[in-house]
């Protein structure tokens, strides 16, 4: 598929999936909480267009877009959010605790970073050629475990890309109240090279990510990729104290509009129809699936001993 069209489709599926998710919550069909990445789709689409399917990825609480761009099925994710047995992790993890192939998420800020760094170490030891990617946000910059990890990744020249998606708000706290000094300086202090883009243009992000991933893969040690972006949606569902006019203003950075302009009307409409129908089908199918039962005893030998076979 044409690169421009493929990137657009990835972003569109993420957008429509998360919009559907919020609608299902509003309609009372989903319970609990979720964090959507509406506005930030270019990051996931751009980055996963330049990674290898075998690379190891650790994402965070705002990980649906990463999962879908990684290649995860909307149906399995929808089922997971509904708590169904057919969900990515059988309904146990929900929105922010999933694992599929080499993709992992956890809902702890900062704590995922040393885990991802250890994964990079393991891949280096095993000489697999795989690299690790970990997604953090501006809010994660407040966590100490991040800096322990940056130090050790640099000391041991580990193959890891630290992706910092700065959406300018940690839940409701603006970066001005949460981050002192320089964002790139925090990586540079450890001798970790920085690629930085203030953009929601997926082509710019794809290009920067391609260069950053290339350095990591060629054995250059850890690299950071800072993307200054915009989150259009609330942190989770209703917790958004930003002014309405600000929310309207940042819509000018909509990655779908910026990149969609590069496609023909026909391509856009077809992509739209495909995305809507695939997501409809995913939610419909998932909603008919059974709920899991509770097994207290874990069988001694069973499915998916995936990491023990690595």
């Amino acid at each position: 598929m044409d690169n421009n069209l493929a990137l657009f489709k990835t972003m569109l599926v993420i957008r429509r999936f998360e919009e559907r998710l919020l609608a299902e919550f509003s309609a009372g069909k989903l319970a609990g909480t979720t964090h959507v990445s509406i506005g930030q789709e270019a990051d996931a689409a751009g980055i996963f267009s330049v990674t290898d399917p075998e690379d190891v990825v650790f994402s965070n609480h705002r990980g649906h877009g990463h999962f879908l761009a990684y290649g995860g099925e909307p149906y399995r994710l929808a089922a997971e959010l509904m708590g169904k047995a057919t969900g990515v992790v059988g309904g146990r993890g929900g929105s922010q605790h999933i694992h599929w192939r080499n993709f992992y998420t956890n809902g702890i800020q900062g704590g995922i970073v040393p885990v991802a760094t250890g994964m990079a170490l393991a891949e280096k030891i095993k000489a697999t050629g795989k690299i690790a990617l970990v997604f953090i946000g501006d809010g994660t910059l407040g966590e100490g475990a991040l800096y322990e990890s940056l130090n050790m990744a640099a000391l041991w020249k580990l193959p890891i890309l630290f992706v910092l998606e700065n959406n300018r708000f940690a839940q409701t706290t603006p970066v001005e109240k949460g981050v002192a000094g320089s964002m790139p300086g925090r990586f540079a202090a450890f001798g970790i090279p920085v690629w930085e883009r203030d953009s929601t243009d997926v082509l710019e992000i794809q290009s920067a990510a391609g260069e950053a991933v290339g350095v990591v893969r060629s054995g250059g040690g850890p690299v950071s990729l800072i993307i200054h972006t915009h989150r259009f949606s609330a942190h989770s569902k209703g917790d958004d104290p930003r002014l309405p006019e600000e929310l309207i203003r940042i819509r000018q950075f909509d990655p779908l509009i910026i990149h969609g302009a590069r496609l023909s009307k026909n391509d856009r409409e077809k992509a739209e129809a495909d995305a809507i129908s695939s997501i409809d089908e995913a939610f419909l199918r998932a909603s008919a699936d059974p709920l899991p039962g509770l097994t207290v005893e874990v069988p001694a030998s069973d499915v998916g001993r995936s990491n023990l076979e690595i």
Binding site: P114, V115, G118, A122, N307, L308, I310
Partner: peptide, 13 residues
């Protein structure tokens, strides 16, 4: 980070 990295190493075999 010592324990976190050990966790990551364990997850990866």
């Amino acid at each position: 980070a010592i324990v976190g990295m050990a966790n990551g190493m364990a997850l990866r075999g």
